[in-house]
Amino acid sequence: MKSQARIPTGRISDPGYPRASNPEYTRHHPRWYRRRMPIFWWLRKLAYTKFILRELTSQPVMYVTLFLLGKMWVLSRGPEAYETFIQWLSHPALLAFHALVLAGLLFHTVTWLNLTPKALVLRVAGRKIPGWAIVGAHYGAWLGLSGAIFWILAGR
């Protein structure tokens, strides 16, 4: 604790009242201090970093869409082209990169589905459907559609 000697009161009559040493200061007129947002503001808090990572999943989404179209194009070029494409995809470096892309996609899916109850407020027979039910239904749809895709593309 500081010494108990004399506590400045903040009154203008107080001899300890801060005297204006700043020439630009005018008494009784606000002279604001404005903080500038740093360019790396998204590192300030974990929540902001997560937010920017979530927003950057736009890039994996973009890549995967182009990849699917690319695969369609390769398929139109005949069996040899497809064979080369498959060999290329089996390269460990590309597989590792694609695992990373998949992780980005999953982050997009999980963050997107978790936020659905914020945007959707549904009522059935006058009763509000609880948030967990909305999230649950979306996860159910995700699992169902993923299962269907697996069944069609890899199940036979």
Partner: peptide, 10 residues
């Protein structure tokens, strides 16, 4: 602490 009449910077 920000004292507009004083240091100028917080």
């Amino acid at each position: 602490r920000y004292r507009p009449e004083g240091e100028g910077a917080p």
